[in-house]
């Protein structure tokens, strides 16, 4: 199994480090053609407007839309924004792969970034929030795996998982382990 990481911009290397530590084979994806070579995909943190801008060119967005419907995909922070059905602050195009509404930069700016420990469906997790978005609506078919206060922060629907925080910057690889399990099963 080959796990792709969308490497337009952002913390794709941080995801790569965690996956390789877990023994996964990793490929950075920078062109639509490279999507054909991978079995699962991570959309990393970074700037969602930068991602979108890049994807709109050369039919990348349509190809990615088809990929996330068919294969296991995990989006963190900007990746979660891209995977959501609806985006606010400001509204922008997205892949609509998971039935969520997401509000960008919902906690504020960098000075409001924080790290917190919570209990989750996967056990204790350390959550790293950087200029993070908030999930403001969760669709009926979406399973909430972790919350921070009352906000869902880790969710899953079918083959798609999304986190508003950065498990790739956490001291534990727990969330990536779960994604690799999902990816190996091909379905949830």
């Amino acid at each position: 199994m080959l796990v792709g990481i969308l490497a337009i911009q952002g913390d794709y290397e941080a995801h790569g480090r965690v996956l390789e530590k877990l023994g996964a084979k990793v490929r950075f994806v920078r062109t639509p053609e490279q999507l054909d070579e991978v079995d699962a995909l991570i959309i990393p943190g970074g700037e969602s407007t930068t991602f979108l801008n890049f994807l709109v060119e050369h039919g990348f967005l349509e190809k990615l839309r088809a990929f996330v419907r068919a294969k296991p995909t995990f989006g963190t922070c900007a990746g979660a924004i891209l995977l959501a059905k609806d985006v606010e602050n400001p509204p922008q195009e997205s892949l609509g792969a998971i039935d969520l509404a997401v509000r960008r930069n919902a906690y504020g700016r960098q000075n409001e970034s924080f790290i917190i420990d919570v209990e989750s469906k996967f056990g204790p997790l350390e959550l790293v929030f950087i200029r993070a978005p908030k999930i403001t609506r969760v669709g009926a078919g979406v399973e909430v795996l972790a919350t921070e206060k009352d906000d869902p922060v880790l969710v899953r629907q079918g083959k798609v998982m999304a986190a508003t925080f950065h498990p790739e910057l956490s001291s534990s690889a727990r969330v990536h382990e779960e994604f690799l399990k999902m990816a190996r099963n091909g379905t949830k």
């Binding site: 911009q9 913390d11 941080a14 943190g45 950065h166």
Partner: peptide, 9 residues
């Protein structure tokens, strides 16, 4: 962490 988000950009 924020610098990580800016990589490649």
């Amino acid at each position: 962490g924020l610098a990580e988000m800016l990589k490649g950009g």
